[in-house]
Simulated scan of single mutants.
Amino acid sequence: MRQALASALAVLVVAAGFIYWIAADLGPRPNFEPYVKPAAAEEMSYLRATYSPLHFRPAIEKAGDEQCLDCHREVLEDKVRKASPAGVQAEAMRAWYQQTPTYAGDQDTFHRRHLVTPLAKQLMNLRCNTCHQGHDPREEAQGASADSAPQSDAGFTLRKQANPETTCLKCHGQYPWQLMGMPGPWEEHKDAFGNNCLTCHAALRTKRHEVTYLNAAAIEEAGQSGADSCYGCHGGRAWYRISYPYARTPWPDMPAEVPDWAKDRPTRSEARFLKQTTGKP
């Protein structure tokens, strides 16, 4: 009998100790952090992405390419087809931009030709917001509503996401041979000048290309070897029937008399394209 009571008492003590041990482990701890289920990442809707502040001023003026390409990476990743739907091989044809001697390589897409091809990296310094300065996705025509761009806003181009008059035309306008007093187009008379723009421009309008979207030093170096690099952006790849009215930046020994065609020209490039210079004290 005594042995049975002793055994029962021992079992009771062990059970009580076990229960106390479990209860002590369940108590609150100083560093206890309750589990919280993480909230699901909110997927940006198309409407919210369309009206992102990066698509409007002033945010777009300071946006970096990495911010733009976060959503628009396809402009660099997409490539041209190896063959047309009719079966014509791309390598067997030459696109219009391949006709100029300065272009090297296979056919490529519009944005890649302006951002990542060898010529673009050598002579240009284009950024997404060089051309894209924001637009109203709801109204793509002036005066379409009470709060849209007014009809008088010449900086807003009908149904375009860039203003070609202030961007594309800079490098895709006609060669203005009439203003230069030449007898005809450059292609017809380049041999008379040794096919070298510096025959005249070594002393004329020597303050040039000093803008953020161009590599001025590389352009000047390329121009030493001939006119092909110069003509490529000054008539050789013309999309339009007019030329761009470049700023007539003063240069050393510039004549005091201003020709009639230049009287309405600005004397410096747009402020957003000017290179920031820090003078030493």
Rank of each mutant, 00 (worst) to 15 (best):
Y46N: 09
G194V: 11
Q107I: 08
E210N: 15
C200V: 07
R48A: 15
Q122L: 13
A238Y: 03
G235L: 07
F273N: 12
R138K: 15
G173P: 08
D228Y: 05
L123D: 00
P137N: 07
A222G: 09
H132K: 05
E139A: 14
V116S: 13
A4P: 00
Y246A: 06
Y246F: 02
K207F: 03
V80C: 08
Y175G: 12
K62S: 14
P58L: 07
Y103I: 08
S152M: 03
T167W: 04
W251P: 08
A141I: 14
H172A: 04
R248I: 00
E210W: 10
T206M: 07
C197K: 12
C233P: 04
P28L: 06
A90T: 09
E165M: 06
E42Q: 12
Y244S: 01
K160D: 05
Q133D: 06
V75L: 09
E74F: 02
A15W: 02
A238G: 08
M182L: 15
A63N: 12
D191N: 13
Q178W: 06
S225P: 03
A154M: 09
P58H: 01
P266Y: 03
P176W: 09
S7A: 15
S7K: 10
A192P: 05
A49S: 10
E139K: 11
G155F: 14
G181K: 06
P259C: 02
A238R: 06
P118G: 11
Q276D: 13
Y231L: 05
N195K: 03
W261E: 11
T267K: 11
P185M: 13
E33P: 00
A40S: 13
S269H: 12
H189P: 05
K190L: 12
H72P: 02
Q161H: 06
C71E: 08
G181Y: 08
M180Y: 13
D108T: 13
T102D: 10
A149K: 12
D78W: 02
P164T: 00
C168F: 09
T117L: 08
F18T: 09
P255H: 01
S52F: 11
E43D: 03
R57N: 04
W21T: 07
W239C: 01
E140P: 04
P30H: 15
E66Q: 15
V116M: 03
P176K: 09
L204I: 15
P252Y: 08
R2W: 10
G105W: 07
T267N: 08
S152V: 01
S45G: 13
E91C: 01
A154E: 14
R159H: 11
G181Q: 09
F110S: 10
L9K: 01
R2G: 14
R241T: 10
R159I: 01
R248C: 00
E139F: 09
E270S: 04
K82N: 11
Q122K: 10
